[in-house]
Every structure is written in structure tokens, then in C-alpha cells.
Design a protein around this nucleic acid. Structure first.
Length: 222
DNA sequence: CTTTGATCATAC
DNA sequence: GTATGATCAAAG
């Protein structure tokens, strides 16, 4: 049922192209997957469906969706006007100094090195939403500079243990927001006084404005 | 309507 | 708990 991993990026692009215009329900039926009535209890359904349809591996492992190609898959919900409806989760944010490295070695940079963005149109039942025109993206020098500046600022705050100061308002393209089962979830972190404290886990997210621009630029180029 | 914070499912 | 996949929902 499920396709094996694509052998190269051209094959991956070919596959996603064949899905363009298809309702998710059509894709799900083909894979023998049942579409949920809504996404309230299945927030990751669209992403998981696309992984299955395109032959992504990796699953819940800490590696790219297409390890051999070094490509990360991201579905992105779009409004009818063609703008992203949500921010994009990238990865969890390290909460203590020892895990903080420089930008070149960062997990975030690695994750965003090459991303296949798959826009999803529609806002009703998941099965009726439609696959848009996917784009394979790598940050331009300018985009990487913005990401790097944000990442360095946010990492500084994290490394210094300023968890109270750091909220979703920091960062131009990137932001740090809670990423946990709920607000009671706790993980260990080193605070500003070098004391171990328990805080709510955080993650890095790409703002909608950044995602919108990158989708526009890649599209215009082609 | 947009942004920030909270939450859901699943594998290990 | 941390990783994967994200959207929901309250507040401005």
C-alpha cells in the first residue's frame, strides 16, 4: 500500500506533483487510512498522511522524513487567500547551556536545510481539504541570516536561563512557544542563577509571515 | 483577525 | 519525558 522511499528528489517532486489537486480523503482511501471528522483529536493527521503517501520513513525518530535525501516534509494549512493559517513547529528548544551550540551546529539549522513544503487548502472536514503546489526549499543567504539572528538571540535568552522574559513575542521569523502535553508538563532547566528548576518545555516555531514569504519566493522562481 | 499560549495522539 | 506530526482556543 505505502510507497517505498523515493530514490532522489526528482522522484519525490514527481510524487508530490501527482498528489496536487487531490482531496486528502482520496489519498487516505488509496492508502486504506480513515479520515477523522475534524483535527481536534488528530492534529498530526495531515502530516502523517502525507508521509505515508510520499514514502517518508523516520516516523517518530529524530531524523529527516527522507533520510537519504536529507529532506524534511512540512504540511502547511493555507487560507483561501493563499496565506498560511498557522505557524510551523520546527524542533524543541534546548533549555540549558550545555545543549547550546553555535548556529552552524544547531538542530534548527539542520532541520531547515531542505524542506518540502506541501500547502493544504480548505478548512472544513480533513477529507475535503486539497493538496496544493508543493515547493522544495532551502534557505537563501538572506533568509538564513534572519533565522540565525533570531536563533542566536533566543538561544542567548535560553542559555542564560531567562525563561520568564522569553515569550512568543521575541524573534522576527522564529519564535519560542510552549511545546508540551499541557501547561503542567515539566522538564529540567538551568535558570539565571544557575539553579536547576522545572519549566514547561518550549519549541522553536516559524512565524506565518516568514513561511508566507518563502513560499512566495520559491513559487515565483519556478 | 492575529498572536501567544495550551493541547492532542502516538512511539519509544 | 522526548521525539514525531501539528492545530486548538483564549486573549488582544
Amino acid at each position: 500500500m505505502r510507497p517505498s522511499p523515493p530514490g532522489n528528489t526528482a522522484e519525490l517532486l514527481e510524487r508530490v506533483k501527482s498528489l496536487e489537486g487531490r482531496p486528502l480523503g482520496w489519498i487516505a482511501a488509496r492508502l486504506n487510512i480513515t479520515a477523522p471528522p475534524d483535527l481536534r483529536r488528530d492534529k498530526g493527521w495531515v502530516g502523517t498522511l502525507l508521509e505515508a503517501a510520499l514514502g517518508a520513513t523516520g516516523g517518530s525518530l529524530a531524523q529527516p522524513d527522507f533520510p537519504d535525501l536529507g529532506v524534511e516534509l512540512k504540511s502547511i494549512p493555507m487560507t483561501d487567500a493563499g496565506r498560511p493559517r498557522e505557524s510551523t513547529f520546527v524542533c524543541t528548544a534546548p533549555l540549558n547551556q550545555e545543549l547550546l551550540t553555535d548556529w552552524e551546529q544547531s538542530w534548527l539549522r539542520a532541520k531547515l536545510a531542505q524542506v518540502l513544503w506541501v500547502p493544504i487548502g480548505g478548512s472544513g472536514a480533513p477529507a475535503s481539504r486539497v493538496v496544493g503546489t508543493a515547493v522544495l526549499w532551502s534557505p537563501t543567504a538572506a533568509q538564513e541570516a534572519v533565522l540565525r539572528a533570531d536563533w542566536e538571540e533566543l538561544s542567548d535568552l535560553l542559555g542564560l536561563g531567562h525563561f520568564e522574559t522569553l515569550d512568543g513575542r521575541w524573534g522576527q521569523a522564529l519564535q519560542v512557544r510552549p511545546k508540551a502535553a499541557d501547561s503542567r508538563a515539566r522538564t529540567w532547566a538551568l535558570d539565571a542563577d544557575a539553579q536547576w528548576v522545572q519549566v514547561n518545555p518550549r519549541g522553536f516555531y516559524l512565524r506565518k509571515s516568514f513561511t508566507q514569504e518563502l513560499l512566495k519566493k520559491v513559487t515565483n522562481k519556478r
